[in-house]
Every structure is written in structure tokens, then in C-alpha cells.
Design a protein around this nucleic acid. Structure first.
Lengths: 335, 335
DNA sequence: ATCAAATTTGCAAACGATTGTTACAAATTG
DNA sequence: CAATTTGTAACAATCGTTTGCAAATTTGAT
């Protein structure tokens, strides 16, 4: 281990005491400019770097946020829906902007996250990114609604958790208008609307409402939650075709499902967008590369990161949660 | 702040001294079973959770690894090549298996990473995942070859850094055999082979060597590194078509480029895989959803994470680097 | 019963910072 | 010029652990 310079060493060289070094470096007003200059120079000369662990121990805060990605059971980190990685990237940017470090962890079951991060003083707060609808995973957090616990989540199945979400209902409306605008008369929703996935339900609600206003009905194909998102899309198209039900537009609850839909349609010889229009939700990168490229509703990732971080910081300081809806936008591509 | 239980509180309740609590909980052999049981129970009853910061301060180690994703300049975190997210996920899994925490950061310029993480005792070592070929970003690490500095990187443009990489040459050979096996007579390589991207060069070398053994030549289309990976593919196909050069197989240096190739071919009315076979490298998820789905060479992500973590841990303990090549595998899809 | 060798436990000193209180000098006031 | 205020830096305590060393206890052999 390399020789380590402490504040004490700096103090010696500057001819002051160690606490004065601390004050000088932290910009305390009760240290003269002259002394501060001496300290700064000594620190510079010795290559002093503060030991964050000492600061953290003393201050009782870590300037670190933990991000936990709760995957679907049995899903490896590499199989995670890429949407969540985009979210992670945004959170990282937002946290960095506020001077916070980010501790990340992938988990497929809840476990004692707080014991590990919050209680152990490894993080001041936690952002839970839930890619699962497994109620057990969330039950843990539901039991953790202690006012002192600073956490916020994305993807919670229920309203009684501290969530940040997309403007799902508005997104659903946009999707409906997109299909209407393209002259579709038989739009269908595909997704686990009635499942634990609260966000999907919201998307459907906005979608159905807007269609209703245009005098159209909004049938939904329920899917098996045990399948992967993509397979859900493939499966739903199969169901749709077998039912003989007419359809010329599809709004998929998420992009992965939409990609499955695209593939299934292609394999059934149904051309997109000629015979059927397809629109997804999430704005994942893979949507750029499908054939045809996937039209989708994309949340503002930057704001998503900001809101997640801002809200958890609010929890830490005891302030109420701020706005929690992330605006979405139509991304017109080829489907 | 909630009331916090310390080892001292546990000691009081168990009727022993605090250091004994520490010993009992850390599994020291010099504590009787009876005492240990008492301590364990008291800790349980009080809901004791150790304060990691105190441990870290005292021990001088953090049990934390920092992962820095160096993006292409101006690239936001959400625009990062998804391959690196898969890598991140694998690293997270490997680190967790070894009991290490992961501190992640996205950066688009080198900056003083070590001052921030290593020197400040926030991490014991660092894994640099470089998505950029910008020599300046890497120059920083080249200047940091101090024996005490524990870091390892993925994606380094040069051999003189502490890298872990895919078996690129072997992958290139596999790609060549794939095209040969499909009867292709005019295979072409597309990618920034001669640029700073060392890995691409290795892929080409293996590819060219294998083709040579089959009596075929291996022309390469150089691309403009300032373009996005996907645009590089689009651009290269354009160049290829304009040149009038015959081609019936394409090996793209990475999947994103391959997806660009696929799109460009599709837009030019050239059918894949009928007229041209395309194979990529990386195994990104988006390749599943392209049309046709992209055949590719996929590194073993799990091993990639393991090797990165293992090697940086070796650096920490002063041991030499272990094996640093990640095996790859052909993933046959539809292109 | 006696004593040396093992076991266990306690004591006290770190680890490297932050921060409330105190002490001193210089500056201000009457 | 004495009395009071202000600015600056020192002192000392503290955050919650780990760990070397000494002390106390138990064990086992004589």
C-alpha cells in the first residue's frame, strides 16, 4: 500500500493544526485567507486526498445513492430489459450532477437491501428499479414505509409505494391518436394490463379513453406474465390470429413486446405498417434496428433520472416528494 | 435520523465488551461458543447492523470496486452501446459473488478517476470499461501504471494497458468459417480495423487468416470513426455498392455496425441472408429483433465479468493477472 | 493441590476526519 | 487607556469499528 498523506501531515507542513486543515479545505469562514493559502499549498505539495470513509463515519452521511435493479426471477443481469439500463444511465448522470456516488446492485429477490446499504451506512438513500412484477419483491418495500427510510422506486406495481413513473396515461392517448391518425379502425392493446404491472394498466386506460372518444372500442389481449416480454408479443399475435378478431393496429405495453409482435407479424406474412400499424412504449435502442423500425412512446430519460434522484434526496432531507411523472413523447419510426 | 444501534449497545446487552462483539460477529476463533451465542442473540434482538464506514476506516479497505464507463465524447449514458451494459451486468454479478460492492460512474473524459475513487478510499480497485477509442482518454491510464494502482480495463486500444478482452482472433476465424460454410466467395470486413480500436483489428486478423487458408481474400472497408457505430455500417454498405466491388458476405466489427449494415442492405433491396450473409460481433440483445435476426459472435458475458473482477482483485493483492481472454461462441440466427 | 499452557476476554489505542468550546490576540468602543 | 467585541486557531471529544497486548480464567498434567 502506498504511503498515505493525511490531513495531519498537511497540517504539519503548513504549521497549523489538523482541524484547521479541515476547515480550510472545507471552506469554513473562520479561517484567514493567509492560513487557507498555506494549507492549500501544503496539500497540493503533498498530494493530499481526503479519506472519504473518515468523513462519512464522522458525518454519518455517505453522499452515495444505492440503485438496486430487481430482475425478473432467474433472469441474469445481461437479460435485463434494456430500458432499465437507459434508466440506470440517466440516474447515474443525475446523481453525478448532484455530487452523489452510485452503488449499483442487481438482485432477483428483495433480500435485506436496507440492511446492506442503508442501515450499514453505505448509502444515504436507495433507488429501486423494478423490472419485475413479482408481488413478493415489492412486499418487502411495502413493509418498509418508515419515515426515516429514504427510497423511491420505478416500476412499482402499486400506488402505495414511493414511485416515479412515466406519464403512462398520456402516452396511451398518444398511441391511440397515432393509430387513429393512420386510419386504423380496429386497434388492439397487447400487454399484462390486469397484472401487477401498474404502469401497463395506466397505458391501457389512456389508450382506451382516447379511442372511446373517437368512437372506437379498445380490446386488449391479456398475456401470460411468465413468458418473456418478447414472447408475450409473439403469443398475443398468435392468439389474435386464431380468434379471427379483426385488427389493423397494435399498441404494445412495452417495446420488447412490440418487437415480439413485429416478428410474429412478419412470420405470419402480415406487413407492417401497410396492413397493421404497431406502436410500442419505452424507447429502447433495439427499436431503431427492427424491421420496420419501431414507432414508440419514449419517456424523457433525462427527466426520469432527475426525478428519481431528486425525490430520493427529498426523502433524505425530509421534504415531500416532488413531481413524479416523467413526460413522454411520440417517436415516429417505421411501424 | 433513526436511533442507531452500535456494537457497544450489543455489548451492553450481552454483558461483554464491545471488542468482543466485534470478534464474535467476525467469526474470530478466540471467542467461546457460549459468548458468541449471547452476542448473536443480543445483536438480533437489537437489530444491530454494522456501520461499514467505521470498518472501512479502520481496515483501510472498502470491499468496493469502481466501474467507470468511458463513453464516446458527447454521448449520453442512454446512448451507450448496449454491449457495455451487458458487461456491466456481468461485472456486477461477479463482484457480488466475491462480496464486493460496485460503484459506477459514466464519464466522457478521463478526469481524475483515481483521486475520486481510489485515492479517496472509496474503492479498492477500478474497472474501466472503455466504449471510446479516444486516445486521450486512455493516455490517462497509460500514465497510471503505478504498481499500487489496481485497475483493469475492457476495450483498451493498446496492448500496454491492463486489459481483458474477447478472443477476438478466434471470433474472427469463426465468422470466416460461417461465411465459407454458407458458400460465400466474396466476404468483406466492415469496421475501424486500423483505428485505435485494438479489438477490431484482432477480429479482422483472425477473419483474414482463416479466409486466406481457404484461398479467399479479405477486403476491408474502413469507416469514419466519428460516425456512430450504426452509421458506420450504413456508410460502409454505401461505399461498397458505389465501388461496384462484388460481395456476398459481411463480417461487421460489432453488432451495432452489423445492424446498420442490415438496414442499409434492406433499404437497397438486397435480401439477407439470400444474397448476402451478415455476421456481427458482441451478442447484443437488439440483434434478436432485427430483420432478419442477426447472426453474431457472442463473448461469454459471465466469464467476461469474472475475469475483469478476478484480475482487478489480483492487482489489489499484488498477484499477477490471470487469463485475460474471454471465449466467444457463434450464435446462429437468421442473417 | 500446584503450576504451566491454553483459552477467553478486557483494555486501550488506533483509523482520519469534523465540530463545539475555549483561549488568545487584535481591533473596536467609550 | 480600560473594557468589550471580534477574528482566528488550538484543544479535545467524537464517529463505530478493529486489533495488539495484557490480564484473567479455565484446562490439564503432574
Amino acid at each position: 500500500m502506498a504511503f498515505r498523506v493525511t490531513a495531519f501531515d498537511v497540517a504539519q507542513r503548513a504549521g497549523v493544526t489538523q482541524p484547521t486543515v479541515s476547515r480550510a479545505l472545507n471552506g469554513s469562514p473562520k479561517v484567514s485567507d493567509e492560513t487557507r493559502a498555506k494549507v492549500l499549498q501544503a496539500a497540493q505539495e503533498l498530494g493530499y486526498v481526503i479519506n472519504q470513509n473518515a468523513t462519512r463515519l464522522r458525518r454519518g452521511e455517505t453522499m452515495t445513492l444505492a440503485v438496486v435493479l430487481i430482475g425478473r426471477a432467474g433472469e441474469s443481469a445481461t437479460e435485463t430489459n434494456p430500458f432499465y439500463f437507459s434508466l440506470l444511465g440517466s440516474v447515474a448522470a443525475a446523481a453525478a450532477a448532484k455530487g452523489y456516488n452510485l452503488l449499483v446492485s442487481f438482485q432477483d429477490s428483495p433480500g435485506n437491501f436496507f440492511g446492506q446499504y442503508d442501515d450499514a451506512r453505505q448509502a444515504d438513500g436507495m433507488i429501486v428499479i423494478g423490472t419485475t412484477q413479482n408481488p413478493e419483491a415489492w412486499a418487502y418495500f411495502r413493509g418498509l414505509d418508515h419515515p426515516d427510510k429514504a427510497w423511491v422506486c420505478w416500476g412499482a406495481p402499486d400506488d402505495d409505494l414511493r414511485w416515479v413513473r412515466s406519464e403512462n396515461e398520456g402516452g396511451g392517448r398518444i398511441a391511440a391518436r397515432y393509430l387513429i391518425e393512420r386510419g386504423r379502425k380496429h386497434p388492439v392493446f397487447i400487454g399484462a394490463r390486469a397484472s401487477q404491472q401498474r404502469q401497463f394498466g395506466e397505458r391501457y386506460d389512456g389508450f382506451a379513453e382516447e379511442l372511446r372518444m373517437a368512437g372506437l372500442s379498445a380490446p386488449a389481449i391479456e398475456v401470460d406474465e411468465s413468458l418473456s416480454r418478447e414472447e408475450q408479443g409473439v403469443e398475443a399475435v398468435r392468439t389474435l390470429l386464431q380468434s379471427g378478431q379483426p385488427f389493423d393496429g397494435i399498441f404494445a405495453a412495452c417495446d420488447l413486446t412490440a418487437l415480439g409482435v413485429l416478428r410474429a407479424l412478419s412470420e405470419s406474412g402480415i406487413s407492417v405498417p401497410e396492413r397493421v400499424s404497431v406502436i410500442g412504449f419505452d424507447g429502447i435502442r433495439a427499436g431503431n434496428y427492427s424491421s420496420p423500425p419501431l414507432t414508440t412512446i419514449e419517456p424523457d430519460f433525462e427527466q426520469a433520472g432527475d426525478l428519481l434522484v431528486q425525490n430520493v434526496l427529498n426523502r433524505i432531507s425530509g421534504e415531500p416528494l416532488t413531481h413524479r411523472r416523467v413526460p413522454v413523447q411520440l417517436v415516429r419510426r417505421g411501424s
